[in-house]
Computed example of a mutant assay.
Amino acid sequence: MTAPRLRQLVIAAETLEAADQLGELLELGAPFVDPGVKEFGLENRVYALGDQFLEVVVPMADSAPARRFIDRVGEGGYMAIFQTDDLNALRARVDGMGIRRVWNIDLPDISASHLHPADIGGAIVSVDEARPAGSWRWGGPAWRDNTVPGRLVSAAMETPDPDGLAARWALALGLTVDERVLYLEDAAIVFREGPVEKLAAFGLYRPDAEAILSRAEAMGLDVDGREIRFAGVGLSLLE
Results as ranks from 00 to 15, higher is better:
Ala187Cys: 13
Asp186Val: 03
Ala156Arg: 12
Ala170Phe: 04
Trp138Ser: 01
Trp138Phe: 02
Pro162Gln: 06
Ser135Trp: 06
Arg151His: 13
Trp138Arg: 01
Arg192Ala: 10
Arg180Lys: 12
Leu171Arg: 00
Pro160Cys: 12
Gly140Tyr: 02
Leu171Ile: 00
Val153Asp: 12
Ala170Cys: 07
Leu184Arg: 10
Ala166Gly: 11
Asn146Leu: 13
Arg192Asn: 08
Thr147Ser: 15
Arg192Trp: 07
Trp143Tyr: 06
Leu173Ser: 06
Val153Trp: 11
Asp163Gln: 13
Ala170Gln: 05
Val177His: 06
Glu185Cys: 10
Arg192Leu: 11
Ala142Cys: 08
Ala133Phe: 02
Glu179Val: 15
Pro149Ala: 15
Ala188Glu: 04
Glu185Ile: 08
Val190Cys: 13
Tyr183Thr: 15
Ile189Leu: 10
Leu173Tyr: 03
Trp138Thr: 00
Val181Trp: 05
Ala188Asn: 04
Gly150Arg: 09
Ser135Arg: 04
Arg168Ile: 01
Leu175His: 04
Ser154Val: 14
Ala172Leu: 10
Trp136His: 04
Asp186Lys: 01
Ala155Lys: 09
Arg151Trp: 12
Arg144Gly: 13
Val177Arg: 02
Trp138His: 00
Thr147Pro: 12
Ala172Arg: 07
Ala142Glu: 11
Val177Ile: 02
Glu185Met: 08
Leu152Cys: 13
Thr176Phe: 05
Asp163Asn: 13
Trp136Glu: 03
Arg137Asn: 04
Pro149Ile: 14
Arg192Cys: 11
Asp178Pro: 07
Leu182Thr: 07
Gly164Trp: 09
Leu175Val: 08
Pro162Cys: 09
Val181Asn: 10
Gly150Thr: 10
Ala156His: 09
Leu182Lys: 09
Arg144His: 15
Trp136Asn: 01
Ala142Ile: 05
Met157Asn: 01
Pro162Glu: 03
Arg137Thr: 00
Ala155Tyr: 11
Ala167Gly: 10
Val190Leu: 13
Gly164Val: 04
Arg131Pro: 05
Gly164Met: 06
Ala142Trp: 09
Val190Ser: 12
Ala156Asp: 08
Gly139Thr: 09
